[in-house]
Amino acid sequence: MNRTLTARRATPGGDLTGFFADLAAGLRMTDLWRTFAWDEMQQRYRRSILGVLWIIIAYAIFVGGVSIIFSAFSRQDGAFFLIHVAIGYAAFNFIVGNVTDGCTVFTGARVWIHSIALPHSIHIYRSICRSIFIFALQFLVAAVILVAAGWRPSLLNLWVLPAIAVFLLNAVAIQYLMGLISARYRDVNHLVTSITRLLLFITPILWTRYDLRGARSFLADFNPVAHYVEIFRAPIMNLEPRPLSWAVVLVLTVLVWVAAVIAASRMRRRLAFWL
């Protein structure tokens, strides 16, 4: 459909290179997925007076409300806890949001997948574009809280950059993988929704890992989302990032990509039939 695809040859069979070609072709059509993402954001808040501001308001309400109540259960001081929630929940929303968005990334784009042969990754990038936008707005709330709490920058903050890079890398693979799987097996979407609800409570957002003792502290480390949150939140809070968290995240990133490549090579070409 585009310049790069003027000559097409389609033959049956799985392919490994096709996945990366698809990712690259989609990336080149930046203008298209940005437009898609922008339209989607506008439509979601169309006819509401405050529009996109609602993302900020909703986040501030949640963080404020939760901190007032839950800080009472923590041994940490109020400001520390507030920042802990504000940054942690934004990171949590981004990571878990990419899993849940991934479940509908292709099923929601059915209309386009059935009408134009675009690279499938277009829909991935559109979806990630939107989650970055929400993440940025939520982080804005956290930044305001940080500044108000008298936050001082330090060299440790630089750890946040590789963390963001890893987040984006994960987002692409997670969404592609979840998108394909849940297009084929529609139960996955429901399964994911039920697990995310649990995740919010077993991830150190409404509580800190410093409050845990003994076996509980050990068990909490089995939650992968906790480590994703940790590598982003710790450096901003001027804390040393845990080597364990980085190790878990890097291993998981590799695993997710391997899974995505395998799923894509086997399922990508059948996608249009499943929608």
Partner: peptide, 26 residues
Amino acid sequence: AGIYTPDEGVVEIEGRTTALVNINLG
């Protein structure tokens, strides 16, 4: 239009393709 890939056989198309297959789509 390149929406479905074949289970068997070969599809070769040279040139930019535009398809209007379903009025409600796209």
